[in-house]
Design a protein around this nucleic acid. Sequence first.
DNA 1: CAGTGGTCGTTAGCATTGCTAAGTAGTTAG
DNA 2: CTAACTACTTAGCAATGCTAACGACCACTG
Lengths: 143, 143
Amino acid sequence: MTERGTAEQLATQLRDAITRLNRRVRQARPVGDLTIAQLSALTSLELAGALSPRELADVERVQPPTMTKIVGKLAERGLVRRTPHPTDGRQVVIAATEEGRAVHAQFARARDEWLARRLAGLPPADRETLRRAAEILQQVARA
Amino acid sequence: MTERGTAEQLATQLRDAITRLNRRVRQARPVGDLTIAQLSALTSLELAGALSPRELADVERVQPPTMTKIVGKLAERGLVRRTPHPTDGRQVVIAATEEGRAVHAQFARARDEWLARRLAGLPPADRETLRRAAEILQQVARA
DNA sequence: CAGTGGTCGTTAGCATTGCTAAGTAGTTAG
DNA sequence: CTAACTACTTAGCAATGCTAACGACCACTG
């Protein structure tokens, strides 16, 4: 089997696993009526401190209009604040509010509870494999 | 660090990687105006030969009404056929048509092209890690 | 100092995905 | 024969994510 063939088989297998797992993780959602996408954006905001919509969209790998919606939902709940950019009048600076940080801390753990329980039941060797795989996948996704 | 803590960190990292990768794979979509979900259902149908909506929903990890929609789209395009169950009047048997099998064969490879290209660029050791990870993830998703 | 072109964010509109609740039709058990 | 259960669908909703188009703003150029 060539490397080409191997990569194609692997791609199919990976996409299959990822699609199903993604559906599963999404199902286990009603944490604090914050969705995965919203929590993910909030997490990225906290890690970076403050970002423009464009930057946040790039980090989250979505198009700017999609991020506008997500940020809109978060702003409605008072979890993030939009402030004008100090020098560039076109840009907006988005940052988490106090409440946003509190909500994030509260729900960040509950979010992955279902998955964490499954993983805790795996043999340590499998977890180690997944840990390395996660790093590789993140690189692939960001490339 | 306890196993508990390890599992939680891993869960967060995995979910992050999977969410981003899933968005990426979905983006590379316009194959034959068949979506990932539709191709996935079509694939499951071919592997199994024929399935009821309930069975197909279980395999795909979605609720029956969701599968009704997906099958509806496939049926519109003439890619699957709904036939009455021979003995149980409540059930429906779904099977791929000739055209469905042809379309599937044509697009199954193109579907994962983007991902396969990325994977082909990885060191073989990384691909091997991902291959084992895919198996583990499939088990986790099905559990 | 106008004008031109580019960038940023948003709005509008669309399709898909996926859910729950409820309805219909058929089957099975008492 | 009725009651309860099962299978599938319909209806309605929310979230995700896209493209196209628009208004505001910046930066550069003549």
